[in-house]
């Protein structure tokens, strides 16, 4: 469009640059602070240009915060949750879309409605379940009378073993795997796949699993990438859940949890070592930031398509 609006164009750039500054300044300050020594970082006003203590600070933060194993744990959890979510979304949506049975709409809604039950509103009981995962099933057995029936018939008391997920990777991963958004995204994708492809596969002699593996999954690569980026960021950034179920921080602590332990301040009776804290913060935020920066196309697509 031919439009001569020089003043407005300058204004546009001004607004956009202001936005840029507002969004980047916090990250910049974190970076600058992480490159100065203790004294400089605590001067008021603080310098706005990086200092020369970067390597020392980061080494110290890495070692003191134990970020090596913590990052590894975070990585294991993020990859596990992401892979699990994609797998489970792909197969449950496949069941709902490509098979005809009575309860499929009900099942879809059961999965979809979990959007309204975020972890934060059910933390206490979810924690209780994680402490003994089979308890719901034991109680169902008892309440339905099935347990009693079995015990009279077979003369044994049916009691499921106690299975605690506290302080384990399973506990960090499994409860986060159910995914309404992922299932929704995959369902939408399947609905756009032309019916003729399934028919051609049938004519080619492929059964349902073969069709899923050879045709649908490869076709869904774009969706997979989109889903993977948002889910990786989501699971790397988990904070409340690991905080609850991990007490064995040495072995199972995640990087984001570790932020709580590097908060400086009088609360912890130590000097405000902000330079170390900021170095730690930057390290923790880097992996998801890299994902967003390098996979931007996919992650924007994933977000917009799921409509949450």
């Amino acid at each position: 469009m031919v439009e001569r609006t020089p003043i407005l164009n300058i204004l546009t750039h001004l607004i956009l640059i202001t936005g840029l500054v507002m969004l980047l300044v916090p990250l910049w300050i974190v970076f600058v602070a992480s490159t100065h020594d203790f004294r400089t970082v605590n001067t008021v006003p603080m310098p706005l240009w990086p200092g020369n203590r970067m390597i020392e600070n980061y080494t110290l933060a890495w070692n003191q915060g134990g970020f090596g194993p913590k990052m590894l744990n975070s990585f294991i959890v993020a990859v596990g949750v992401t892979a699990g979510k994609i797998a489970i979304a792909a197969i449950s949506a496949y069941s709902i879309v490509y098979f005809k049975y009575r309860f499929r709409s009900l099942f879809f809604w059961l999965i979809f409605v979990t959007l309204m039950l975020p972890l934060e509103v059910r933390i206490v009981p979810t924690y209780a379940v994680a402490a003994n995962v089979l308890r719901p099933y034991q109680e169902l057995l008892d309440a339905s009378g099935l347990g009693a029936l079995l015990s009279t018939l077979m003369g044994i008391k049916v009691s499921l073993p106690e299975w605690s997920m506290l302080n384990s990777y399973t506990g960090l991963i499994l409860p986060l795997i159910a995914t309404a958004t992922g299932t929704f995204l995959y369902r939408q994708f399947y609905l756009t796949v032309p019916d003729e492809l399934a028919e051609a596969a049938k004519m080619d002699g492929a059964g349902p699993l073969r069709f899923f593996w050879d045709v649908l999954l490869p076709l869904s690569r774009t969706n997979m990438a989109a889903l993977a980026t948002i889910m990786f960021v989501y699971s790397w950034n988990q904070y409340l859940w690991p905080l609850l179920i991990i007490t064995d921080i040495a072995n199972y602590g995640t990087a984001v949890m570790q932020l709580q332990r590097i908060v400086p301040g009088p609360l912890f009776g130590e000097p405000p070592r902000w330079h170390i804290a900021m170095a730690g913060t930057l390290m923790v935020m880097t992996p998801p930031l890299l994902v967003v920066i390098f996979m931007q196309r996919w992650f924007v697509r994933g977000l917009v398509q799921t409509d949450k």
């Binding site: 969004l23 916090p26 990250l27 300050i29 950034n237 804290a277 900021m278 920066i293 931007q296």
Partner: peptide, 21 residues
């Protein structure tokens, strides 16, 4: 490109950064 970045930052990391700033 840059406006997307803050999405990646974990809430507690935002908290800690802002606590310092």
């Amino acid at each position: 490109f840059v406006y997307f970045w803050p999405y990646a930052v974990a809430a507690p990391a935002v908290g800690l950064a802002f606590r310092f700033i």
